Every structure is written in C-alpha cells, then in structure tokens.
Simulated assay, not measured.
Amino acid sequence: MNKIDPSLYIHNQPKRTPSPNLGKDEFMKILMTQLQNQDPLNPMEDRDFVAQMANFSSLEQMMNMSKSIDTLVQSQLISPVIQYSHMIGKEVSYQTFDEDTGQKKEIVTSNVIAVSQKDGWAIFELENGEKIYADSVLQVRDKQTEGESSSSESKGSG
C-alpha cells in the first residue's frame, strides 16, 4: 500500500493571499492554464478561444482607459493659481473694450502682482488695479528683459 506524502496535506501548503484585482497577467495565466489542461478529445472550440481573447483585449483597453482618466483627473486638480503663479512679476498686454459699445479701445500693458481664481479660471491682478482673465492676455514680457532692451535702444539712438 502506498503512503500519502505529508507535504501534500493542505495544512502543510504555503499560505497564498489572493489578489483582489484581476489584471491582464492573471487573465493570461488563466487562459494558458485552461489551454494546457483542456481535454484532448474535446478541445476548446475556436470561437470560445476568440471570445476569451476579445475579453482579454477589452480588459487591457479598459485598464489603459482607466489610467488615462486618472491622469486627466489629476491634471484637472491642479489649481489655476498654481498653474499661473509663474506669471507674477511678468509684464502683460491686453485689449481693453468700451463697456457701452463693446468696441476695442486700446492695448494696455501692466505688471502681474497676484494670481487668483474664479469659477476655475485664472485671474491676473495687475499693478494698474485691473483684474483680467489669463486667456485675455495678448503678450507676456519679462520686466527685466524689457528694461535692458529699452536701455540699449536709447544708447544706440543717442
């Protein structure tokens, strides 16, 4: 009579912790195990195999889409104040409009002294007391660079 090897008893097997997530690697392992252990007299039909491969492809696409959505959500969580904080100290030019007629008046230039937000939009607070939306800026200049170029221009013309 053959004896049963005690190492095969369930309580002597190493403990495994199942993963709560079924990813593409686990799905492929299941599929490969299924193919290796199929009945040779009654193998898996082609359409079953194709259906499982389609499920695998869908799973992979959903995982990639989930990662893309997570990235999008994280980028949307960045505050406009943080996104535009580098504009503090920059000189910006913007178009002014006549409030009554809506006609363009003039292009005004001022320095950004603070950045705030309203309804998710960045607002620049300017040295001249105006507050403008970030998307209304026509031109951005570094104050120091502009000062250096105007002083070199005045030297050349004199």
Rank of each mutant, 00 (worst) to 15 (best):
M1L: 06
K3D: 11
P6E: 08
S7M: 12
S7H: 08
S7Q: 07
I10Y: 01
K15Y: 01
T17K: 10
P18N: 10
L22T: 12
E26S: 08
I30W: 01
L31R: 09
T33M: 13
Q34I: 01
Q34A: 10
Q38W: 02
Q38K: 06
Q38A: 00
P40R: 05
P40F: 09
L41V: 12
P43C: 03
M44Y: 10
E45K: 10
R47V: 13
D48G: 11
F49A: 15
V50D: 14
V50A: 14
A51L: 01
Q52E: 09
M53L: 15
M53N: 09
A54H: 04
S57L: 07
S58V: 12
S58P: 05
S58M: 11
L59K: 02
E60M: 15
Q61E: 11
M62C: 03
M62K: 07
M63K: 05
M63Q: 10
M63F: 09
N64H: 13
M65P: 06
S68D: 09
I69S: 03
I69W: 07
Q74N: 13
Q74H: 09
P80A: 01
I82Q: 05
Q83D: 09
Y84N: 09
Y84A: 06
M87E: 03
G89L: 08
K90L: 08
K90M: 11
E91Y: 04
S93R: 12
S93Y: 03
Y94D: 11
T96E: 05
S110Y: 01
I113Q: 03
A114G: 02
V115R: 00
K118D: 14
I123E: 02
F124D: 02
E125H: 15
L126R: 07
L126T: 01
E130C: 12
E130Y: 10
E130N: 15
I132F: 00
I132V: 01
I132N: 14
A134I: 03
Q139A: 15
V140C: 08
R141P: 09
D142K: 13
K143N: 12
T145Q: 14
E146V: 09
G147S: 08
E148F: 13
S150Q: 08
S150F: 12
S151I: 13
S152G: 04
E153P: 06
K155I: 14
K155H: 00
G156P: 07
